[in-house]
Design a protein around this nucleic acid. Structure first.
Length: 490
RNA sequence: CGGGGUGUAGCGUAGUCCGGUUAUCGCGCCAGUUUUGGGAACUGGAGGUCGCAGGUUCGAAUCCUGCCACCCCGACCA
């Protein structure tokens, strides 16, 4: 049991904050709203990046890099876009500091004021579309399929590590196409990539859908999203893929000559996932004993802990450990042998349990004399004695089992937290219990806005697989032909 | 940005109302010895601008003023 660790039921948000720090994932920095991602947390992010990056490249995308700074005037070119982001921009006004006249420190040098302020990018559509104008002249230049791994800044009022920080890491794909249809296909394709990643790597089941107009990205015609459900019953938007139409092409005058020799505006998409995925990962699987990681993203998949008395036993345990490590590494499994003398086995058990290492192997001199070892799995907290022969094969299989088990557990939770609601009275009761509520909605922003005002619940998405069904809006009673998903969200 | 709360060692804290020796205790840290199957024990030791800046006072962690940071609840959001 984790000592002095608050439980989820006692205080969910305190549980989350403490978990992030105690599992050594990240800590608050001296800079307001910005966190330090620590090596263990960053290692998880690197595994996420590697898997996503491969999928982007397998679907034909290339990486590139655009400037951190964007001239202010670029934001003025797309009206909806600027309205969405203006309130949370960091602005660079000077390029030099000088000593204050009273000797108390530094101040921006008035002589070094920028003629035009630079915005620290909150997202890169504007600078990228300004650049694309120079790249695109003909249909032969299309499509452009580019992704960028970067940091962005959004000056948020209230921040929480991984879920909402003023600076965060992400990737943003920006593609340019000849036709509307091709751009929409790209938007959906990348949504599928995200959903596949969430479910198969993170072991987090997600709902694929389209945002209602209220929740749409600033400047998009359609925003597709994946929505996950956290253990406290709140929804988390885990990734978005936008169909931008010709909005940015028009704002930045990006045209191409078609096969028919007609000058046309380019069709665009953008899509992104961020370090917020770390928050989704943490909140989906972890328990009152600490972090639980899916094997596919765990920096350490197997930890080996030795127990011995005296030099002779230690040598024997060491040699078994060495053999097991090399067998596991040959299978591409990341393994750590923790033979530090400074900590006792019990201490290490708790340490790795808290950090979510999927499999623990205890190599004890007493067991080894009988050819046995002990395997503990983090997801179920169960232990089992096994014969040492063929151990690496069993561990390989076990890692697959754990990956599947935590996905199924999360899926089961989501299914049991998703229910159909057919009346306003019922909605008011059910929304308090958390989870996804599948309801009829009249399709108007006014209704959505009122429901949000009264209950804090928003439409998370209109599921892509929603079936046609006659019904009445839970709020207005007007006709509706499909159900949408409501929830309170992060 | 509005409402509420909190700042004392790396972390958690006592002391603050009612100013007065060398700022309390636990964890952690360092050294040594004994230990090792679910967070080891003993002995010794290091570590403090009491959030910051002013002020009142013989004397301030304690009283006053201003500022800053963080947490919770709202509005906003990947």
């Amino acid at each position: 049991m984790a000592k002095d660790f608050v439980t989820r039921s006692e205080n969910y948000s305190e549980w989350y904050n403490e978990l992030v720090v105690r599992a050594d994932l990240a800590e608050n920095s001296a800079v307001r709203g910005c966190m330090v991602i620590k090596p263990y947390g960053y290692a998880i992010w690197e595994k996420m990046q590697a898997a996503l990056d491969k999928m982007f490249k397998d679907t034909g995308h290339q990486n590139a890099y655009f400037p951190l700074f964007i001239p202010k005037s670029y934001f003025e070119k797309e009206a909806e876009h600027v309205e969405g982001f203006a309130k949370e921009c960091a602005v660079v006004t000077h390029h030099r500091l000088r000593a204050k006249s009273d000797g108390t420190g530094l101040e921006p040098d008035p002589d070094a004021k920028l003629e035009e302020e630079l915005i620290v990018r909150p997202t890169s559509e504007t600078i990228i579309w300004d650049t694309y104008r120079g790249w695109i002249k003909s249909y032969r230049d299309l499509p452009i399929l580019v992704n960028q791994w970067a940091n962005v800044v959004r000056w948020e009022m209230r921040t929480r590590m991984f879920l909402r920080t003023a600076e965060f890491l992400w990737q943003e794909g920006h593609t340019a196409h000849e036709t509307s249809q091709e751009a929409i296909e790209e938007t959906k394709k990348m949504l599928d990539v995200y959903a596949f990643f969430a479910e198969n790597f993170m072991a987090v089941p997600v709902l694929k859908g389209v945002k209602s107009p209220n929740e749409r990205f600033a400047g998009a015609l359609d925003t597709y999203c994946i929505e996950a459900l956290m253990q406290d019953g709140k929804a988390l938007q885990a990734g978005t893929s936008h169909f931008l139409g010709q909005n940015f092409a028009k704002a930045f005058d990006v045209k191409f000559l078609s096969k028919e020799n007609k000058l046309e505006y380019v069709w665009a998409t953008s899509w992104g996932v961020s370090t917020r995925l770390m928050g989704a990962l943490i909140m989906s699987h972890s328990d009152d004993n600490g972090l639980v990681l899916p094997p596919k993203l765990a920096p350490i998949q197997v930890v080996i802990i030795p127990i011995s008395k005296g030099e002779e036993q230690k040598a024997m345990v060491d040699s078994h450990a060495e053999k097991l490590c090399s067998e596991l590494r040959a299978k591409g499994i990341s393994v750590k042998y923790d033979d530090r003398d400074a900590y006792k086995p019990g201490w290490k058990f708790n340490e790795y349990e808290f950090k979510g290492v999927p499999v623990r192997v205890t190599l004890g001199a007493r067991d080894l004399e009988q050819g046995l070892i002990e395997i503990a799995r983090r997801d179920t907290l169960t232990k089992e004695s096994m014969q040492i022969e063929g151990l690496s094969d069993k561990i390989e299989k076990l890692l697959e089992d754990i990956q599947e088990n935590i996905y199924n557990k999360a899926l089961h939770f989501r299914e049991e937290s998703t229910r159909e609601v057919n009346s306003w009275e019922e909605f008011l009761v059910e929304i308090e219990k958390g989870g996804f509520l599948s309801c009829h909605w009249d399709g108007t922003p006014e209704t959505e806005e009122k429901i949000k005002e009264i209950t804090k619940a928003t439409i998370r998405c209109i599921p892509l697989d929603a079936k046609e069904e006659e019904g009445k809006c839970i709020f207005s009673g007007k006709a509706s032909n499909k159900r949408v998903v409501f929830a309170r969200a992060y």
